Amino acid sequence: MSIVNIDVTLRDGGYRNGFAFPLAYARKHAKLSVEAGFDWVEIAYRKGSFAPIPDLGLTGRGDDDYITAMAQEIGPERVAMILHPKNITRDDLPAMYAAGARLVRIILPAKGYETGLEYVRQAKDLGFTVGVNFARISQWPARDVVEVATAATDAGAEFVYLADSNGSLSPVDTTDLTTLTRSVTGRAVGLHAHNNLGLALANAISAVAAGATWMDSSIQGMGKGPGNLIAEQWLAHLDRTDPEAAARLSLAPLLELADLLLANIPEGRPSLPLPDLVLGRYDLSVEHRKDLLGGHGKAIATARVLAGVQ
């Protein structure tokens, strides 16, 4: 089973540094990422993340000239973008394609996803490799997964990503969601794991065992909160266990990339903010972090109330 790997460091890692990666660093990062064997480098959001962020940096904006610079560095066939439908207009996808992006992921909510489907159709018509992301999948009822996944693939999505935005999934949860999504769509399924509970690698292994064929990871796990699936661990695991993957991977440039990140991006160092562990335990989103103030005991008590735990 061939795994398609996406490096999401420049995008998801932006939550740690205001998306303020210098262009020179981003180009070096992407070049080494491709040498390591990543199929795609997700270089940015297009016009911002879910919530507005002041002074949004390069990899949070995804401007056309930035896309072009990255496509010149690694080739358009490696340049991926992600977006929230509420942030764009119908002019954005043609501009992104012309600038050099060739894969786009469209984030769909469980309710009110119809506008996103229009962008799925538009992206498909333009020639993008196009998929959808289901954010905060740990909070989705199974009926919503079935409904939105079916609608998205009917609209032309080639793959469906299960995004564990809260870092709350267990390997059993991941297996069940992957199996359900594959069964109702017949399309490829991917996992975007967060590491709030230290389960990102276990969840990735479980997802692949259940038939997932797309996987996100980031260098040093750099991403929102405690971060994502750690690319160095994930690709080393594939190199050891998957002969087909091993033939396409190269660990030396991967480790060189980790050194480059740590030497140039202070926020790239692994971190486990304790409030994010609590958020993961109670399946709460990052927007609730501000509520978990006043000491650990109070934070846990507040989290239990927010989660409706008796």
Rank of each mutant, 00 (worst) to 15 (best):
S2R: 14
V4D: 04
N5D: 06
I6T: 11
I6Y: 07
I6A: 00
G14F: 03
G14D: 02
F21M: 03
A24Y: 07
A26L: 05
H29A: 10
A30I: 00
E35P: 02
I43L: 10
K47V: 06
A51E: 14
P54S: 14
D65V: 13
Y66Q: 05
A71G: 03
Q72H: 13
E77G: 13
E77R: 14
M81N: 01
N87G: 01
I88T: 07
D91H: 14
P94A: 10
G100M: 06
A101L: 03
R102G: 02
R102T: 13
L108H: 04
P109N: 14
E114K: 14
L117I: 12
A123E: 05
K124F: 05
L126F: 08
F134S: 06
F134D: 01
I137M: 03
W140V: 02
P141W: 08
V148M: 10
A155S: 12
E158D: 12
V160E: 00
L162Q: 02
S165R: 01
T174H: 05
T174I: 08
L177C: 09
T178P: 04
V184K: 11
V189T: 09
L191S: 05
H192K: 08
H192T: 05
G198C: 10
A202K: 03
N203I: 11
A207E: 01
A209Q: 15
A210L: 09
G211K: 06
M215E: 09
D216M: 03
D216W: 02
Q220P: 00
Q220E: 14
G221M: 04
K224W: 10
E232M: 04
A246L: 02
A247P: 06
P253T: 05
E256N: 13
E256H: 11
A258R: 12
L260R: 04
P266K: 11
P270L: 10
P270H: 11
P275G: 07
P275S: 08
E287F: 11
E287Q: 12
H288M: 09
R289I: 13
L293P: 00
H296Q: 14
A301V: 04
T302V: 11
Q310L: 11
Q310N: 13
